[in-house]
Amino acid sequence: FDIYVVTADYLPLGAEQDAITLREGQYVEVLDAAHPLRWLVRTKPTKSSPSRQGWVSPAYLDRRL
């Protein structure tokens, strides 16, 4: 999967189903980028939180090589 970094805090609107909150600087794996406005991502697990999966706007993501 492609690795992206979150460029700004992402707080989903209440109406968005299956969306997750992301923090600036967080790394995520993009699982599904087929839709231009919503990408399915999975967060990297940390010592304090397990990995999470949900939909985010790709405008908040920047690809890492």
Score class of each variant (00 low, 15 high):
Gly54Tyr: 10
Tyr4Cys: 04
Ala33Phe: 10
Ala59Thr: 11
Leu31Glu: 01
Ser57Arg: 03
Gly54Asp: 02
Ala33Ser: 13
Arg52Lys: 13
Tyr4Gly: 01
Gln53Ser: 10
Asp32Ile: 09
His35Val: 04
Ser48Tyr: 13
Glu16Cys: 08
Leu61Arg: 00
Ser49Pro: 02
Leu37His: 14
Arg23Met: 12
Val5Thr: 05
Leu13Val: 12
Thr43Ser: 06
Thr21Cys: 11
Asp18Leu: 06
Asp62Gln: 14
Leu11Glu: 14
Tyr10Cys: 05
Leu11Tyr: 15
Arg38Ala: 06
Leu65Trp: 14
Phe1Pro: 10
Ile20Leu: 12
His35Cys: 07
Arg63Asn: 10
Glu24Met: 14
Val6Ile: 05
Glu24Ser: 12
Ala15Leu: 11
Thr43Tyr: 06
Pro36Thr: 06
Asp2Lys: 11
Pro45Asp: 08
Ser51Met: 10
Val56Arg: 00
His35Arg: 06
Asp18Gln: 08
Ser49Asn: 12
Lys47Ala: 14
Leu37Arg: 08
Pro36Asn: 06
Gln53Thr: 15
Tyr60Ile: 10
Ile3Ser: 05
Thr21Glu: 14
Pro36Asp: 08
Trp39Arg: 00
Arg23Asn: 09
Tyr27Asn: 04
Glu29Cys: 06
Thr43Lys: 02
Val28Gln: 00
Gly14Trp: 12
Ala34Val: 09
Leu65Gly: 13
Leu65Glu: 15
Pro50Lys: 07
Asp32Pro: 00
Gln26Asn: 05
Asp9Lys: 05
Leu40Gly: 00
Tyr4Trp: 14
Val30Glu: 00
Leu61Tyr: 00
Asp9Phe: 04
Gln53Cys: 09
Ala59His: 10
Ala59Glu: 13
Leu22Trp: 03
Asp18His: 08
Lys47Gln: 11
Ile3Trp: 15
His35Lys: 05
Ser48Glu: 15
Leu37Ile: 07
Leu31Pro: 00
Asp32Gly: 02
Thr21Gly: 09
Thr43Ala: 04
Leu65Met: 13
Arg52Asp: 06
Arg64Asn: 13
Ser48Thr: 13
Pro58Phe: 02
Glu29Asn: 04
Leu65Tyr: 14
Leu13Arg: 11
Lys44Gly: 06
Ile20Gly: 03
Tyr10Arg: 03
Tyr4Ser: 01
Asp18Ile: 04
Val30Leu: 09
Leu31Asp: 01
Trp39Lys: 00
Val41Met: 00
Ser48Leu: 12
Thr43Met: 04
Glu16Ala: 10
Ala15Thr: 15
Pro50Val: 08
Val56Ser: 01
Lys44Phe: 15
Ala8His: 12
Tyr4Asp: 00
Arg38Tyr: 09
Asp2Ala: 14
Arg63Thr: 08
Tyr10Gln: 03
Leu37Ser: 12
Ser49Gly: 10
Leu65Phe: 14
Leu13Tyr: 10
Ala19Gln: 10
Glu16Leu: 09
Leu40Glu: 04
Pro50Ala: 08
Leu22Ile: 04
Ser48Ala: 11
Leu31Arg: 02
Gln26Arg: 03
Val28Ile: 04
Gln26Ser: 07
His35Met: 08
Asp62Val: 14
Gln26Met: 12
Arg23Trp: 13
Thr7Tyr: 03
Pro36Ser: 07
Asp18Asn: 08
Ser48Asp: 15
Tyr10Leu: 05
Gly14Ser: 14
Leu65Ile: 14
Thr7Pro: 01
Tyr10Trp: 10
Arg63Cys: 07
Gln17Thr: 13
Tyr4Gln: 01
Leu22Glu: 00
Glu16Gly: 10
Ser57Gly: 04
Thr7Met: 10
Asp9Glu: 06
Ser49Tyr: 10
Phe1Ile: 09
Leu65Arg: 05
Val28His: 00
Asp18Cys: 08
Ser51Arg: 06
Thr7Gln: 05
Pro45Ser: 10
Arg42Asn: 03
Val56Gly: 01
Thr46Ile: 06
Tyr4Met: 06
Val5Lys: 07
Tyr27Ser: 06
Thr21Pro: 14
Ser49Glu: 15
Ile3Pro: 03
Glu29Val: 10
Ser57Cys: 06
Arg64His: 15
Pro36Gly: 06
Lys44Tyr: 15
Ser49Leu: 11
Ser49Met: 12
Pro50Asp: 07
Val56Glu: 00
Leu37Phe: 10
Gly14Val: 13
Ile3Cys: 08
Gln53Ile: 15
Gln26Trp: 10
Val56Lys: 00
Ile20Thr: 03
Val28Thr: 01
Asp18Phe: 09
Pro58Cys: 04
Asp62Leu: 11
Ser51Pro: 09
Asp18Met: 07
Arg64Asp: 14
Ala8Leu: 08
Trp39Thr: 00
Leu11Arg: 12
Leu22Gln: 01
Arg38Phe: 08
Arg64Trp: 15
Val41Asp: 01
Pro50Trp: 04
Arg52Met: 13
Arg42Trp: 03
Ser48Lys: 09
Leu37Asn: 13
Asp32Lys: 05
Gln17Asn: 13
Val41Trp: 01
Val5Phe: 07
Val56Phe: 03
Glu24Asp: 04
Pro12Ala: 09
Leu13Asp: 15
Lys44Arg: 14
Gly54Val: 11
Arg38Val: 06
Gly54Phe: 10
Leu37Gln: 11
His35Gln: 09
Tyr10Thr: 06
Val5His: 05
Tyr4Pro: 00
Ser57Glu: 08
Trp55Asp: 00
Asp9Val: 04
Thr43Asp: 02
Val5Met: 10
Tyr60Thr: 03
Gln17Glu: 14
Leu31Trp: 03
Lys47Ser: 13
Gln26Ile: 05
Arg64Ser: 13
Ala33Arg: 14
Gly25Asp: 02
Pro12Trp: 07
Tyr4Arg: 03
Lys44Glu: 11
Leu37Thr: 12
Ser51Thr: 09
Arg38Asp: 02
Ile20Arg: 02
Arg42Ile: 05
Thr46Met: 07
Ile3Val: 12
Asp2Met: 12
